[in-house]
Design a protein around this nucleic acid. Structure first.
Lengths: 343, 343
DNA sequence: TTGATCGATGTAATCGATTACATGAAAGCT
DNA sequence: AGCTTTCATGTAATCGATTACATCGATCAA
């Protein structure tokens, strides 16, 4: 039943050499004679040997894996980032462990487990709202495996961060609405404790100010990035006595929910209100109407993040120079925005 | 810089006991005296010790991880299944490794690597179209770590499979259209080499036959589950001299693409054609029009799969009784389907 | 009282690789 | 020729835990 799994000893025996030679033939081919190498390779094929990662990891003090801490695994937003990460790391021989940082069972001690040298050689954190204790906990930063932030981050945690320019994205959205003649501009926010929410809000506020458009408090509507919260925002919008004619939603999901719910109540986009999203998720271009939005290079974010982490792992020293790579966003203009009605 | 990581020896030293006792105190608390246990725990806290997974894995011949082989990681369809898997496995102390089986770099030898005892204690395969060699390769099935199929599967590979009843789903879709008075029913297929495509097609065909509706060849339109292929299918539909008035798309993504592209050409759903999807992805309920579709319990699929795999790992013997769990689907009727126009 | 049993703990083998160090043969140098 | 260097390979320590087996004192039964 449980077939015998050949080990390096068996290969050594078949090849008539020592285990050290087998190991060398496989890992540093140049260090053995061509003849021996051939013999070993033949022996490997004959026995069907494949090395035991665990043993190798133990000896070389590496795990060959990185972990990605994702908030809400079921959120499709992350799958493309994950894909970008996986591309790069698998090429480098690392495998990817994923964990849902927002999962109820996912205690902070479990996070810590990941952060130490135990389970992975490095960590990518996509969740900016982990409590600070995770990073301290009596131990200094550098005792942990190297880690980096992507998309989200936590202020005061000085590690490399790969993200987009959220303020610039918000600016583009608002300026676009303004350029279409909209003077009454609203904003649907993300979850309250989120850095992205803060940044996109700040970008929106700043731009409104620069354009001399009065930000009205009741035009800032709470949300949490989800479709459902976009629907709720639409109901709030409907209630407003004086309605903004352009609305910038901090995520595409909210924008789609917003439009959908408006449609259920007989409003039309962009006739009655122009809507801009953020992210450019795949369906955005195919929604009816197609969604004007701020595109995030998600695949690129994943790939860049993975590269930075691999760098950190390789030269696992200078963590001090906390790099911050800011990737460009662009506005994709589609059919959900149109000229303000002059009346 | 690289802080010293305490090992079990250090704990033993501080506690004044042997390493064996420390290990026992931590793993089988009942086997040591209460007093010793307390001492050890104190020593652990003092030293900040956490065990080294790799060492533990090596000795106990386990990896504490399972791998999930996903076709096209960036496809959001899988993220919810992944989430269901992660929930269950993390609770059981396993971590989840993901790999993209459709990734160009992902050679079949790499898959094999995962399938053996090297990297994981078990494997979940979400891709039914891996070549048979992956499962044989000169070695018999049982030499590999236990694995299970979920969603997709490969005939002739006798391992536990967790899936939905695709034929029943197709039947529901067709019967629903029929009950609305549609007699000309089309079908947009998934990728040609896919089991799901075959099953859903078979279900569609069978039901059409039972209802005495002639299946017309040009009403079966090729696709590949993607949004884009749905758009393409719409263009094909438009070309048809005699058009089906009801179309069942084998995935929601295709259904949305289909509707979107029709809309671009001035057709309206369900006025000009009723459309049914498959999957019930999150946005389906919020599309305009909202999408009638066959709901897959994706979270449940993930959770069930994980449980079955854990069972297999625990009693890693009888693989012969290849279980096949079929989870129920249901039709969610929304606004993309309506009565056939009588003219 | 004596031998058996049991519970708590220590000693050392073990998991399966990598790698520092040792060895011996061949090649190079004066 | 005699000495050093180099190259290929073998020997054995090592990574850090778990665990089979040994030990020893205490308890128990006859």
């Amino acid at each position: 039943m449980n077939r015998y799994v050949p080990k390096i000893q068996d290969v050594a025996h078949v090849a008539g050499v020592s285990t050290a030679t087998v190991s060398r033939a496989l890992n540093k081919p140049d260090s053995v004679s061509e003849e021996t190498r051939a013999t070993v390779i033949r022996a490997v094929e004959k026995t069907g040997y494949r090395f035991n990662q665990t043993a190798r990891n133990l000896r070389s003090r590496k795990t060959g894996a990185i972990v990605v801490l994702v908030p809400h695994l079921s959120n499709p937003f992350f799958s493309q980032i994950l894909s970008g990460i996986e591309n790069v790391t698998s090429r480098a021989g690392y495998s990817v462990l994923i964990a849902d940082s927002k999962h109820p069972d996912f205690g902070h001690d479990r996070i810590l487990e990941y952060m130490r040298y135990n389970r992975a050689d490095g960590v990518i954190v996509l969740d900016g709202s982990l409590p600070l204790e995770v990073y301290h906990n009596g131990h200094s930063f550098d005792s942990a495996a190297p880690f980096v932030f992507a998309c989200e981050w936590t202020d005061d945690v000085p590690v490399p961060t790969i993200r987009i320019d959220n303020r610039a994205g918000a600016r583009m959205a608002v300026e676009h609405l303004n350029s279409l003649g909209h003077r009454k501009i609203g904003h649907v926010l993300g979850p309250p404790d989120n850095v992205l929410t803060r940044e996109r809000l700040a970008g929106t506020r700043d731009t409104l100010n620069e354009l001399n458009l009065q930000p009205r408090n009741d035009w800032f509507i709470d949300g949490d990035f989800s479709i459902e919260s976009g629907c709720k925002a639409a109901r709030s919008w409907i209630q407003l006595a004086e309605k903004p004619t352009g609305v910038f939603c901090a995520s595409d999901q909210m924008a789609l929910g917003f439009i959908s719910e408006l449609s259920n109540h007989g409003y039309r986009v962009p006739r009655d209100v122009s809507v801009v999203g953020f992210d450019d998720i795949e369906i955005a271009g195919r929604f009816i109407p197609s969604l004007t939005t701020i595109r995030q290079p998600r695949n690129d974010i994943g790939a860049t993040t993975a590269n930075v982490l691999l760098e950190q792992i390789k030269g696992s020293q200078r963590n001090g120079d906390a790099i911050c790579k800011i990737l460009p966003v662009e506005i994709i203009i589609r059919d959900s925005t149109g000229p303000a009605r002059t009346n």
